[in-house]
Each structure stands twice: as C-alpha cells, then as structure tokens.
C-alpha cells in the first residue's frame, strides 16, 4: 500500500443537494475538504482535496447531516508515493445522515508491455 500524498475530489450533484460542508473520512478521522470550489446544491459541482501524506486504510465521503444528497458522479484523483497518479470514477449514489460511501481504491497493479 503506497503512501497517499494528496487527492482531488470532484462531485457532481443530481436533483437533491445540500449546503455542505463536504466532509470525508480517512482512516476513521472526519475532515472537511480543503480548497473547495463550487457547491453541492442541486445540479452543482464541487471540487476539493486534501494533503493526506499518510497511508490510507479507508476513505469515505460522509453524507450530509440533514436530508439526502443525490450524487450523480464522483471522481477522485489520487496522487500516491512511487505510483503513477490514478483516477477512480464512481456512478450515482445517494447519501444521508446515516451513510458514507467508500471512495478508496488501491492503485491499479503495475503493468508492463510484452
């Protein structure tokens, strides 16, 4: 498991949005996204990231404190130590005050041409 240096998250909201703030959880520590641009209201797109500089065992996007959050798509760009940068795109998911969605994926296995 490589060290996660930082990541950037782009979240496209569907019909039901919220006022934020957008929080994520890394290794069970809840933290708000940093350098946030845009919004997470209905039809809006929000971007943010975090300088982690640690080993990620788990990473989730936390649901809003109130109401539903319909996420249309969610893209995470990961920048890990000694690993090619990689992106993971997730499909639609709805979050609420009792849910969080897993957004961590290990880096793709290294490949070589034969």
């Amino acid at each position: 498991m490589p060290r996660l240096i930082n990541f950037k998250m782009t979240i496209e909201t569907g019909d039901k949005g919220n006022d934020g703030p957008v929080k994520f959880s890394i290794n069970n520590h809840q933290v708000p996204l940093e350098e946030v641009t845009g919004g997470c209201g209905a039809g809006e797109t929000v971007e943010g990231g975090f300088h982690v500089n640690s080993f990620a065992h788990s990473m989730t996007l936390i649901g809003p404190e109130e109401g539903d959050w319909e996420i249309k798509s969610l893209k995470v760009d990961y920048f890990c130590e000694n690993t090619e940068p990689y992106s993971v795109t997730f499909g639609p998911v709805t979050l609420d005050d009792k849910t969080e969605v897993n957004v961590w994926r290990d880096p793709p296995l290294p490949t070589f041409d034969v």
């Binding site: 989730t60 936390i62 649901g63 996420i71 798509s73 969610l74 090619e84 940068p85 990689y86 992106s87 993971v88 795109t89 997730f90 499909g91 639609p92 998911v93 979050l95 005050d97 009792k98 849910t99 969080e100 969605v101 897993n102 957004v103 994926r105 880096p107 793709p108």
Partner: peptide
C-alpha cells in the same frame, strides 16, 4: 454510519 458502495465506473492510471 453505514458504509455503502457506489458503482465504480472506471479506474485508470
């Protein structure tokens, strides 16, 4: 909270 899974569309380097 309950951890749920979103459908993964693509993983690419």
């Amino acid at each position: 909270r309950t951890i749920i899974q979103a459908p993964m569309v693509v993983v690419k380097s």
